[in-house]
């Protein structure tokens, strides 16, 4: 996935008093026995529930697993799929794996970048936020070139078909 790592500064993290309660994380914490080796499992679940890893979430996880915040932050920032910004209403991920590359993923991505950029055609048409990203292969290469929109795979796409589909989302 496109890297999007804005590191939480320690001052920002510590300036918010109290770690906040995240009772919804209790089941996964219990399943992992509050052991440090369950960190990535816990972070995956936290992001699934909250869409992103906020400073408060990271502090909570650190405390629950008895790990330094730096360890939690350092691990989270290593992996591409963890994000530290809220997700947009819709997410369009262009696969840039080998098969998709051979079938023209580059042109597809460039066209979408142009269209979805501020001032692009879609914005002019009254777009709500669509986040554009990339992924290196989702493993369904029979459908190349493909995009993944809100977790749904759209096979055999062209810039026009993706844009038409994205417009359909907003209605």
């Amino acid at each position: 996935m496109a890297t999007d790592h804005s590191i939480v500064s320690s001052r920002e993290a510590s300036s918010q008093p109290g770690s906040g309660a995240f009772p919804e994380l209790e089941p996964v914490l219990r399943r992992q026995g509050h052991r440090p080796d369950g960190l990535i499992e816990v972070l995956n679940r936290a992001q699934e529930l909250h869409g992103q890893l906020t400073p408060a979430l990271l502090r909570h996880v650190a405390a629950a697993l008895r790990l330094p915040l730096s360890r939690v932050q350092g691990t989270a920032s290593f992996y591409h799929l963890f994000r530290f910004k809220p997700p947009a209403a819709h997410r369009c991920v262009v696969c840039t794996g080998t098969a998709c590359h051979v079938k023209g993923a580059d042109a597809l991505l460039r066209a979408l970048e142009r269209e979805l950029a501020p001032g692009g055609a879609t914005e002019a048409a009254g777009a709500e936020a669509i986040e554009l990203g990339t992924v290196r292969c989702v493993g369904t290469c029979g459908g190349a070139p493909l995009v993944v929109v809100d977790e749904q795979v759209w096979n055999h796409q062209t810039p026009a078909s993706v844009l038409a589909g994205l417009r359909g989302l907003r209605r």
Partner: peptide, 19 residues
């Protein structure tokens, strides 16, 4: 996993399993 190709390498994979 959480998106890191290098984790296919066995020693990196071990570290990732360990959190």
């Amino acid at each position: 996993g959480a998106g890191a190709f290098v984790c296919g390498e066995e020693t990196a994979l071990i570290h990732s399993i360990e959190g």
